[in-house]
């Protein structure tokens, strides 16, 4: 166990050193390096999840929520650019915490990409939806998120932020990881997607206002039913949980 720990830590340190070295030696490629950082930080969160022994109930719960987030757009097939994925992940993060929120978002993106076909967008989508869940979980006890309009603000912010994260890969491929960071071009590019992002934000708001409370209630009920109550409170304090026998 000890040896494994040393290997993991040194590997992580090595990676960081390598990244730093690369960003100095390859200044023109720092965009790709930032992608590497995104991937690495996701990996770190995944490793964190891996280290914790999750009960079958928790795994199943995460999988159900990720699957629902992934297929949630199906009923909206007849209504363009409305999808509840972000809403589902947000609610999950809010009730089950940052780490679970991240896992649900990332797995939803990864699994649906594995079924529909992957592309260069896969890691970005994982990161974007993972962060939606993560940030919702971080703020779960804040005053902002316990207030309907606070959640609405959060939904609007993420409507745009999500689009921007997804734009980054588009922008990078467009400038080919290039050395031409021009504010004007970034601005234009992002403005072009603003309409879609606004729709995304609007549907988030719509869902949050109409369903936010009901979903929090439903998910909280299941948190109790799955016996994840005591576990959650402890994990936010970073204390190892004592597993109850079901």
């Amino acid at each position: 166990m000890q040896a494994k720990k040393i290997i993991v830590t040194s590997a992580a340190l090595l990676m960081v050193a390598l990244l730093l070295y690369l960003s100095f030696s390859l200044q023109s490629q720092y965009i790709w390096i930032s992608l590497a950082i995104v991937v690495l930080s996701m990996l770190l969160l995944l490793i964190r999840f891996e280290k914790r022994k999750a009960e079958p109930r928790e795994l199943v719960l995460l999988a159900v929520l990720a699957a629902i987030a992934a297929v949630g757009r199906v009923p909206f097939a007849s209504i363009p650019s409305v999808q509840p994925t972000t809403f589902v992940i947000m609610m999950s993060g809010l009730v089950f915490g940052a780490e679970s929120g991240f896992i649900i978002g990332a797995v939803a993106a990864l699994a649906s990409n594995m079924i529909l076909g992957q592309g260069p967008w896969t890691p970005w989508q994982m990161a974007a939806w993972g962060l939606v869940g993560f940030s919702a979980g971080l703020l779960k006890n804040s005053r902002l998120m316990n207030w309907t309009w606070g959640r609405v603000v959060f939904g609007i912010v993420w409507g745009f932020l999500f689009g921007w994260i997804m734009n980054i890969w588009g922008y990078f491929s467009f400038t080919q990881g290039g050395n031409l960071f021009e504010l004007k071009s970034i601005f234009t590019y992002f403005a072009a997607s603003a309409l879609f992002d606004a729709m995304h934000a609007a549907s988030n708001v719509f869902f949050l206002v109409l369903f936010g409370k009901a979903w929090i209630k439903i998910l909280t009920r299941f948190k109790r039913k799955y016996g994840l109550m005591e576990f959650r409170e402890l994990s936010s304090l970073n204390i190892k949980p004592i597993h109850k026998k079901y």
């Binding site: 079958p56 159900v64 699957a67 629902i68 009923p75 509840p84 589902v88 109409l210 369903f211 439903i218």
Partner: peptide
């Protein structure tokens, strides 16, 4: 749009109820 999310909500409640059995089967 509201109806669409109601469908998803039914799916959520139903699936979370049923999935306890999946965990038991594990």
């Amino acid at each position: 749009v509201k109806t669409g999310l109601l469908y998803v909500q039914v799916l959520l409640t139903y699936s979370l109820e049923e999935a306890i059995q999946t965990a038991d089967s594990m």
